[in-house]
Design a binder for these strands. Structure first.
Lengths: 195, 195, 195, 195
DNA sequence: AATGAATGAGGGTTCATTCAT
DNA sequence: CATGAATGAACCCTCATTCAT
C-alpha cells in the first residue's frame, strides 16, 4: 500500500500523471494503464477519483482552459483608452503561460481537437468566450476610431488564429520563437498589418 | 455480388465512402464497418484496396493536401508587383475549395490533428511548404518595401493562422461567413492591420 | 490468358505447384495464393480442378502414399526363404524414393500428421497396411524359426518406427546419412535383433 | 465473477484447460474460445496469462518435454555395467508417463509436429538431447563390447523411432498394448538387436 | 476453360471498466 | 481507501471460396 494522501492530493497526483501521459502520447494513444503507471496507483484507485479516461481528460482540459481564461478575462471596461495595453497584456500573459507549459499546447491544440461532439462543444464554448472578448475590444476600438470597420467576426477569428497558429507551429515545427518575439510580431501585425 | 467496377473506380468509391464516414464521426469514431457500409462493399473488399483504416485515411488526406496545394503553389516569380494579386488569388481559390467541401475542413483541421507522430510529420511538412510560400511572398514584399521588417517566421505563421482559424471556426461555430467576406477581411487585415 | 493445357496436364501442374508450396510452408502455412502463384494460374482455375485446399492436399498425399505402396507391396508369398531379401528390397526402394524426394518426407511426416480426424484415419489406414505387411513377414519368419516369439504388433510397430524416425530426423536434423547407410543399419538392427 | 485463485493456480487452470482443448481438436482445430470455455474464464483473462494461442501451446509443450526429460536424464555414468538396467529404467518411466497421459502423446506426436519453423527447432532440440543420451549409452556399450559397431547416429535414431512409433500407433490405432508389453518388446528388440 | 474481383464467416487481440478482497 | 485480477464488448484483419464476365 502506497503512502496515504488526502483525497485532494490523490486527485492532483492523478491529474498530473494524466497530463504527463496525454502529453506524451495524446488522448487516444494513452491508456489508463499509462496514467496509473505514471501515478504509481492501482487501477481501481483511478476509478475512485475519476469516472474514466474521458473524464480525467475533461478535468485536465477544464483546468487548462480555466488557467488561460484567468490570464485573459481581466479586461478593460472603464478606461477605454487603455484597451491596446490591455490586449497587449493578455497576449503577454497567455503566451508566457503556454510557452512555460508546452504540454498545455499539446493538449489544447492537438488532443482536444476532434475528440468528439461533446468535447467539440466545450472547446467551441471556450473559443466563443475568447472571441467574445476580442470582439468587445474590437468594437470599442471601432467606436473610438482606431479600428477600421469590417466584419468583426472574421476579424476576431483571424486574430485568434494568428495566435493559435503560432503555438501550433511551436508544437509541430522546429522553429521555436521566444515569447517576446511572438508577442511583438503579433502585436505589430494587429496594429498595422504587414505594411 | 455488386455491380462491377474497374479497380480505379472501386478505389475512388471507397475513398469517397471513407470521406463521408470520417467526416461524420472523425477518425477515431469511424470503424472500418462504417466505411464498408457506406461503400456497400464487403469487408474483404476493403482490405483488397487498402491496408487498413489508417492507410485509407492517409490516402484521403494526401488527396486533400494535394488539392489544396494545387490551388496554391502557382506562385508569382517574375512580375513581382503582382504578388499581392497572386496571394489574393491563392486566398480566393483555397477558400472556395474549402467552403465548397466542408468535409475537407473537418479532416484537415480536426481529424488529422494529433493522430500520431508519423502523421504529424506529414502535416508538418504540408504546413512547412505553405509557410515557405508565404515567407517567400513576404520577403519579396520586404525587398519591394511594402512589407515591414520583422520576424518572417512568426509573421508567416500568423497569416496562416488567420486563415486556418477562420475555417476552423467555420466548422465549429454557427457563424458561417461567405467566402467573399472571409477573403475580404483577411486581405484587409494583412494589408493594414486593424487600423 | 496462359498457354492451353489438357485437363490432365493442368491438374498435374497444380499438384506439382501444391507440392512445392506445401513443402515450403507446410499445410497450414500454405495459402491457396501460394499454390496458384507457384502454378501461375488464376484463383478460379484452381477451384476448377480441386474442391479446395484440403482436397488438393489429399490428392497429393494419396499420390505419395501410392508411390510408397508401389515400392513395397510387391511382397513374397511363395518362396518363403526369400523374405529377408524381399524386405531388404522394400527397405531399399522406399528409402531411395524418400531420399530422392525429401518433400515426400515433409508431407508424410510433418504436414499430414494431426491434420484432422478424417485424415488421421487415412494415414492410419496406410500405416495399417504397411504394418500388416511387416507382420506377415514377421509371422512367416517366426514359423520358419528365424524370428523369435513376441508381441507381433509391437514388434512390427517398432520396425516401422525405426524406419520412419530415420527419415524424420533426416528432415529435422543436420545429420543426413546416405540411403545406403540407412539401409545397412536398419537391416542390421532388424536382422540381429530378430535372431 | 468466478472464484479467486492465486496467479499460479489460474495459470495452471488455463494450462490444463488448454491441454484438454488441444487434446480434443489439435492445435489448429482449437480456438482460444475453446480454451477459455474449458477453463470457464473470460476472454481477457486468457490474455492476462498468455500472449496468445501459440504461447500457451508452447508453455504446454515445454512442460511436457520437461516431464519426459525428468524421467530420462537420470543416466548412468559411473557403473557402466548398469547401463542396460538404466536404459530399461528410462524406457519404463517414460512409457508409464505417456500411457498414463495419452494427451501428452497426442500433443507431442501430432500437434507439435510441423507447427512452424520455430517450433520445429524446439522439437529438434528436444530429440537431439534424447538422441545424445542414447548415443552415449550406445558408445559405452560398444566400448564394453556388447553393442556391435555401426553408424551410431542411425542406430540411435532407429531406437528412438521404435519407441516413438509405438506411441504414435497407440494414439492412432486400435491396438493398445499395455505399458509392460511395450517395454518388454522394445527392450528385447534392442537387446537382441545389439548383441 | 480461364479469370480475378468480391465475399464474409471466422478468429485473434485489446483495453476501459468493474468488483471481490 | 486501495488493490489488481477478471471481465467482455468492441474491432481489426485474414483467407478459403464463389461467381459474373
Amino acid at each position: 500500500m502506497k503512502e496515504r494522501f488526502s483525497k485532494e492530493e490523490r486527485r492532483k497526483q492523478l491529474l498530473t500523471a494524466a497530463m504527463v501521459a496525454f502529453g506524451k502520447k495524446g488522448y487516444h494513444g494513452t491508456q489508463v494503464s499509462d496514467i496509473i503507471y505514471e501515478a504509481d496507483v492501482a487501477r481501481g484507485t483511478f476509478y475512485l477519483y475519476f469516472e474514466g479516461k474521458r473524464e480525467i481528460f475533461d478535468a485536465l482540459l477544464a483546468e487548462i482552459l480555466q488557467k488561460v481564461k484567468n490570464e485573459v478575462t481581466l479586461l478593460p471596461r472603464d478606461a477605454v483608452d487603455k484597451i491596446p495595453e490591455q490586449m497587449m497584456g493578455n497576449l503577454k500573459r497567455v503566451t508566457h503561460l503556454l510557452i512555460d507549459n508546452p504540454t498545455y499546447i499539446k493538449l489544447l491544440f492537438s488532443d482536444a481537437v476532434g475528440l468528439d461532439t461533446e468535447f467539440d462543444h466545450r472547446l467551441k464554448q471556450f473559443y466563443e468566450d475568447i472571441l467574445d472578448l476580442i470582439r468587445r475590444g474590437l468594437r470599442q476600438g471601432q467606436e473610438m476610431g482606431f479600428v477600421r470597420q469590417g466584419n468583426i467576426h472574421v476579424l476576431a477569428t483571424s486574430l485568434l488564429g494568428c495566435f493559435k497558429e503560432v503555438f501550433y507551429q511551436y508544437l509541430l515545427g522546429t522553429e521555436k520563437p521566444t515569447a517576446d518575439e511572438i508577442i511583438r510580431e503579433i502585436y505589430a501585425l494587429v496594429m498595422a498589418g504587414l505594411a
